[in-house]
């Protein structure tokens, strides 16, 4: 595939790539790995995926280790209890078998692989190969792996899923991305967030999970083997983004794609030094400075009223302007000789 020439082409191309993944298009990405942590949980992303899945009448199945509450149209496979791996797989197959197209969301891949002992290949074979569906797995990057005592030479589960994934979406908090960027612009170390990095006892950063939206750092692995990297901004969707649902559907179709590149977000590309934005939007012509250069109405009026010496001198009698008016004080020592020059 030829490289996009202009920035606009690149942006359009990248947005389309993510849009295809989020909208669960067939063959876009059979196994999408979502890496999240407490700074930015994957919740908003999963919500959007679920909504888009339902809007396209895709069967949404959730293998849930963490949530009991899902949308009524979503098929829930509870896995937090004592179910064994085989039981979960049987339930999953049962939930998928009557649909042509499904998306399977696993809200904790670590639990599925380590605790339930399901092999990644097994579930990938079942979902992606047998049912030609899409697997969406969430992995909490802040869960540490203990040493694997049973099989010390086996790869860590995170390495394994990273190796197998066809798309990797890393969730980042928008507020923290902005803070990092500000720090980088001033060439200082970027601030650390979250557990262990802030004060002792602070579990989640205050800037985590901002309602404005989330930042997705995406790695698309194309069929050609070529990876593509881009960072996106996903705002929470509103009912206005979707058309009214037709009969028998839960959600109407998406009106217009609203995922954008992070670079196009006005709050991100704003450059306080006063340079124009390369992508337009969000910038005004005003100079940015720490001083207030504005004039109040009163100050403006006073400025208008000033009579410049040049005009004053043209009056009859030479005018009074232009002379230096100074009253001698006691401490002034008037030097006659200097004045004679």
């Amino acid at each position: 595939m030829p490289q996009p020439v202009t920035y606009a082409q690149h942006a359009r191309h990248s947005t389309l790539m993510l849009s295809r993944v989020l909208s669960l298009r067939t063959n876009a990405s059979p196994f999408t790995l979502v890496l999240d942590d407490l700074n930015q949980p994957a919740g908003p992303l999963l919500k959007e995926v679920t909504r888009r899945g339902l809007s396209r009448n895709v069967n949404v199945v959730v293998i849930s280790f963490e949530r009991k509450r899902v949308h009524p149209a979503v098929r829930l496979v509870p896995a937090w209890g004592p179910q064994t791996g085989e039981q979960i797989l049987a339930l999953l197959e049962n939930a998928m078998h009557d649909y042509k197209e499904s998306v399977v969301v696993v809200d904790s891949l670590y639990e599925l692989l380590v605790t339930k002992g399901i092999d990644m290949n097994t579930i990938f074979q079942l979902v992606a190969v047998k049912y030609n569906s899409i697997l969406f797995g969430v992995y909490h990057a802040d869960v540490h792996n203990g040493p694997n005592t049973a099989n010390p030479y086996a790869p860590q589960p995170l390495d394994l899923v990273k190796y197998m994934a066809t798309t990797i979406l890393t969730c980042q908090s928008f507020a923290q991305v902005l803070a990092d960027k500000r720090a980088k612009e001033r060439s200082i170390a970027s601030p650390l967030h979250g557990i262990g990095n802030e004060a002792e006892g602070a579990v989640q950063a205050l800037t985590s999970n901002t309602p404005a939206g989330i930042v997705l750092a995406a790695e698309f692995r194309r069929r050609s083997g070529k990876p593509e990297y881009e960072t996106f901004f996903l705002r929470p969707s509103t009912p206005a983004d979707y058309n009214a649902p037709i009969a028998g559907m839960q959600v109407g179709t998406l009106k217009l794609e609203f995922v954008t590149l992070l670079n196009e977000h006005p709050a991100y590309c704003k450059q306080p030094e006063g340079y124009g934005s390369p992508f337009g939007g969000g910038m005004t012509d005003e100079m940015v400075s720490t001083f207030n250069l504005e004039l109040t109405a009163k100050q403006k009026e006073a400025r208008e009223g000033v009579v410049l010496p040049y005009f004053d001198a043209q009056k009859e009698g030479g005018g009074e302007g232009g002379r230096i008016l100074y009253d001698m004080g006691v401490e002034d020592d008037f030097d006659e000789e200097e004045d004679e020059i």
Partner: peptide, 27 residues
Amino acid sequence: RITGGGSNTEGWWDESDNRSEEEQGRE
């Protein structure tokens, strides 16, 4: 410190996407 946690309130689903003030982080 009060923050929203990992699985926000009504699961990741509901039409009324009103994350009120108390869902925001606060100290």
